[in-house]
Design a protein around this nucleic acid. Structure first.
Length: 960
RNA sequence: GCGGACGUGGUGGAACUGGUAGACACACCAGACUUAGGAUCUGGUGCCGAAAGGCGUGGGGGUUCGAGUCCCCCCGUCCGCACCA
């Protein structure tokens, strides 16, 4: 009887569907476990083999937890708003709602055939008004809240209004603009518009102005990665910075809470470090530099106020608001030219720029302590969004400042004596200060505090904690996103009543941008007539809280009931890629903290543990085309071994001519011939061997190609067609359609089955590591399942299962396997668990073990990995309930004990012999006998034995 | 530029707290069975060497009885950097 995986898998998938095997009830009496995959965006290309990697891991883990008796929430849904659907709509005119729905159907079909245990009754879709109603609702709560720095939590905006009426904002510095100060009297006198403008500076969701990459020719705003070398990636049109009204989330107020929370959650150290660096908390001072001859001052932020006497010049970001004022008439032209240059550069390009660029403004600032004039420059290496957008340059202590000073031949003041070598800046904090007035003789580290005190005492500056993180831009000038439930009333943003939600995204015919860089909604008269906001929300709006919706997906009264969030609590295990490290994972942490602050959920961190899956890379295949310097009737393609010879220089034109002579008798090959690698679809190559007939049909230009194979020529319509072995080259590259190295899981499942596919993805290597997908190795896993099948049936289909008592060897391999597999699954080491399953089946095959008492527990432990075959065999064993609901067998240590241990014996660290000793043999006995061993005696001959190290149960090392 | 990760046979990888490097697979080689095989089974397989033995975890140095694992320096590859999600 054959292992007919196609029938088996179809049958059980149907059974699970019909019996609602994976439906999860809100039965709050059982212990819960929540396993979540990162929200997929249903792209038009469908799943490729890289997507399911994390889904398989989480599915195995979820099933494993079910076997351990937990009620497991393991849902799936769609992050369905997004740019690609809109881009597609622009190109084809098809509405994003339609294409998105189609894509979701494809994804869902693909996922279903892999046999995941998702509870599809809980499926959600961010573009469904029933869902985004609550996204809009949470946005309104953010809009109606502010962050109280004293209590360090979000509070209703009414509280703030009450405070203003009582005492103004003297105790609550304005986060949007610290210069705004008023008392209660002044507050009461403000107009409604003035009051609203001030409140806007406090709201957690607020409207302000921001710079975007504006492409006039495309009439649209572009993402940073759509801009290459100052022009649009598509079309190569010029891109400039443009100020547009934007919504933001005041995530910076949560910076400290986000840092603190990292201590309490199970993210990898690398992930925590990335978030910490992104938040970028630093301590220092803001220092005011008066401008010579003008009644203005420049505020700089520095983490190194101790270097204040090493300042030789100031540098402002080109976008700094004072640049215009500071530019003197004779520098006007140079500054204008420089500004034009920087406007064409993305932030990324500016940060990565190695060349030193900049421009003098013509003005001088005065040193706050000694009035020394300091030239004021602008340069792209200073970013407007960080600190105050202006720096005090200390060339002897900062490498970028140093390069800048040398390039523009500015003076360099040395304040650290011999610690500065005149060639490179030295960023030390340990040097003793010189040339530094009242700081002379102090160690730099200690001087920091002295300077800050002095600055504050003299009113020249103040202590400052700075964050690299900026408030999160929360609007897009796009169509396919959640509309903001906001109406503009004479410049005042008014929230729509919560009862009117959802504010549905209207149907549009055209996805073209609106006037003045506004979103497409600005083109709709019925939309603008109602004065509705025309921006839409970004992709991360819906994904910032979706894990809560799964807990209570059909609730029409709340985004999630309190009982549901109390029961399900945090996501116990969250699986996804590191690419979300600083985007989604920070935003959703902030939303969770916010909802917690406002009392809607009982926890303030969304994810207890995070598992990062690596990327699946493509494994590309190549054929090698012979390029001579003459036209050829058909391409000549050479097998891989010829490429190798050519690369070694041992493939001559004459040899090639001889090889091709039968078919091209008059061919002359130039000695300077060349072999060009051409990508060939990895799906028409078996391992490295090209499927020649399929290849000829793949692209017309190869139909008549002359193939020089390992075993001769293959030429169509000639007598030279018998050669079969054309070997392709292999290289690991990013998986992409243009490289013909994408593999569709549908094909793999069709050929080998879902169980094989699941196990192979896991067998490929550690879940968190990136690795290339190569279908070659899949045979091994498939063979394993066939071998398992043969423990139950012989070739003739005879049922082999016996009810006899197992031998100690059989018990040992079973329990050894259970132990390893349970431990490995628990620590997400799925690849080693698969190995152990293989070892177990190999051993049972060798032992001719067909015993129920062994195979039944084995099936239960394997079922998270290969659910279909286990379900089939489980039922064949006579069960009529699902194996997925069985109980995980217990490991019994008594079967694991071994009486003898085989010690490796090393001399000076090199293993030279093996000796068996009882597991409990005393060290002294081992020592004596080791020195009697003939091989060991030989190795220590002529030397004196200094020491014999015995590590019990491990090894013995003789030091001689 | 900044930040993060990773370098082990021909290939994917194993080695969990410093203790037999290469488990388990793929590929390859040899053989068996078969009308046939992209089926199945058996054996071999890090490199050099006839063997004894030597060499081997990106490169260099160090700690240790013992280093893939710990420390220092260097090299390479991949990922992220705020409007892709």
């Amino acid at each position: 009887m054959e292992y007919t995986f196609r029938e088996i898998e179809k049958k059980w998938q149907q059974y699970w569907d019909e019996h609602q095997t994976y439906q999860v009830e809100n039965d709050f009496s059982r212990p819960k476990y929540y396993v979540l995959d990162m929200f997929p965006y249903p792209s038009g290309a469908g799943l490729h083999v890289g997507h399911p990697l994390g889904y398989i891991a989480s599915d195995i883990y979820a099933r494993f937890k079910k076997l351990q008796g937990y009620q497991v929430l393991h849902p799936m849904g769609w992050d369905a708003f997004g740019l690609p659907a809109e881009q597609y709509a622009l190109e084809t005119g098809q509405h994003p709602a339609i294409t998105t729905q189609r894509n979701i159907e494809t994804f869902k079909r693909q996922l279903k055939q892999i046999g995941f245990c998702y509870d599809w009754n809980r499926e959600i879709n961010t573009s469904d008004p029933k869902y985004y109603r609550w996204t809009q609702w949470i946005f309104l709560q953010l809009f109606k809240s502010w962050f109280n720095r004293h209590t360090q939590k979000a509070e209703p905006i009414e509280n703030l209004v009450a405070i203003f009426e009582r005492e103004g904002n003297i105790h609550h510095e304005c986060p949007g603009d610290p210069h705004i100060r008023f008392n209660a009297e002044e507050w009461k006198k403000f107009s409604e518009k003035e009051k609203e403008d001030i409140l806007m500076h406090y709201r957690l969701a607020y409207c302000s102005w921001g710079e975007v990459n504006w492409c006039e020719a495309l009439g649209t705003v572009l993402a940073n990665d759509e801009v290459v070398n100052g022009v649009s990636e598509r079309g190569g049109y010029p891109v400039v910075k443009k100020r547009l009204r934007q919504w933001y989330l005041r995530i910076t107020e949560y910076a400290d809470r986000l840092l603190e929370g990292l201590q309490r959650i199970g993210f990898s150290e690398a992930m925590k470090e990335m978030q910490t660096n992104w938040i970028g908390k630093s301590y220092g001072a803001n220092i005011f530099f008066p401008v010579q001859g003008k009644d203005i001052q420049i505020e700089v932020f520095t983490t190194r106020p101790d270097t204040i006497f090493g300042v030789d010049f100031l540098v402002l970001a080109p976008e700094h608001t004072l640049v215009e004022t500071l530019t003197t008439p004779d520098q006007q032209q140079a500054v204008q030219a420089y500004l034009e240059y920087t406007r064409s550069r993305t932030e990324r390009e500016r940060m990565a720029e190695k060349r030193v660029t900049g421009c003098f403004t013509g003005s001088y600032a005065l040193h706050p302590f000694n009035n020394k004039p300091l030239p004021i420059w602008i340069s792209e290496y200073v970013l407007v969004g960080y600190g105050t957008g202006a720096i005090m340059a200390v060339p002897c202590g900062d490498e970028r400042d140093h390069r800048f000073a040398r390039h523009f031949q500015l003076p360099i003041t040395n304040i650290i004596g011999k610690d500065y070598d005149g060639q490179h800046a030295n960023p030390t904090k340990e040097a003793i200060l010189e040339n530094s007035d009242f700081l002379n003789g102090l160690v730099m580290r200690d001087a920091i505090e002295v300077v800050i005190r002095k600055l504050e005492e003299k009113g020249l500056g103040k202590r400052k904690v700075n964050y690299k993180m900026r408030d999160a831009a929360f609007s897009r000038q796009r169509y396919w996103g959640e509309p903001f439930p906001i109406v503009w009333d004479n410049g005042i943003a008014r929230p729509l009543p919560e009862s009117s939600l959802p504010l549905e995204l209207p149907y549009v015919e055209s996805y073209r941008p609106g006037p003045e860089g506004q979103g497409p909604l600005a083109n709709l008269p019925e939309w603008t007539a109602r004065k509705l906001e025309t921006n839409t929300m970004p992709g991360y709006a819906g994904s910032s809280w979706y894990f809560l919706r799964y807990m209570d997906p059909h609730n029409d009264h709340e985004f999630c009931s309190r009982e549901a969030s109390e029961y399900w609590g945090q996501v116990d295990v969250y699986v996804g890629g590191t690419e979300h490290a600083v985007g989604h994972l920070l935003y959703s942490r902030m939303w969770t903290k916010f909802l917690y602050d406002r009392g809607y959920i009982p926890f303030d961190e969304p994810y207890k543990k995070l598992i990062n899956q690596g990327m699946i890379q493509g494994s590309s295949r190549f054929v090698y085309r012979l390029d001579t310097h003459q036209p050829l009737p058909h391409p000549i393609l050479l097998s891989y071994s010829y490429l190798e010879k050519w690369q070694q220089g041992s493939l001559s034109a004459e040899t090639l001519q001889q090889l091709l002579q039968p078919i091209l008798p008059h061919l002359h090959i130039d000695p300077n011939f060349h072999l060009s690698p051409l990508h060939v679809d990895v799906n028409i190559v078996n391992g490295t061997e090209l499927q020649i007939e399929t290849f000829r049909k793949w692209k017309p230009e190869f139909a008549q190609a002359i193939l020089l194979c390992e075993d001769g020529l293959n030429v169509p319509d000639s007598k030279y067609f018998q050669a079969k072995k054309y070997v392709c080259g292999v290289e690991v590259e990013k998986m992409s359609k243009s490289k013909y190295n994408t593999v569709n899981p549908d094909d793999v499942v069709a050929q080998y089955g879902a169980d094989t596919f699941r196990m192979y993805e896991m067998f490929l290597g550690p879940i968190e590591q990136s690795k290339p997908w190569d279908t070659q190795g899949i045979e091994g896993v498939h063979r394993f399942l066939k071998k398992l099948w043969r423990l139950f049936f012989d070739e003739k289909g005879q049922w082999l299962i016996q009810d006899t008592e197992p031998t100690p060897d059989e018990w040992r391999i079973l329990h050894k396997t259970l132990k390893k597999v349970i431990e490995d699954t628990e620590r997400f080491s799925f690849n080693t668990a698969v190995s152990q399953f293989m070892i177990c089946v190999n051993t049972l095959t060798d032992l001719h073990c067909h015993k129920r008492a062994i195979l039944e527990p084995f099936l239960i432990s394997l079922c998270p990995y290969a659910p279909h075959i286990c379900e089939e065999l489980w039922h064949r064993l006579g069960h009529d309930t699902s194996v997925t609901k069985a109980a995980l067998p217990k490991v019994e240590e008594k079967f694991l004990e071994e009486s003898l241990f085989n010690y490796p014996i090393a001399v000076n660290g090199k293993t030279r012999a093996q000796m068996q000793f009882p597991a409990d043999a005393p060290d002294e006995l081992i020592r004596e006998q080791v020195l009697q061993h003939p091989t060991i005696k030989k190795w220590i001959e002529g030397k004196s034995v200094k020491k014999v190290i015995v590590v019990k149960g491990r090894m013995v090392n003789v030091v001689a």
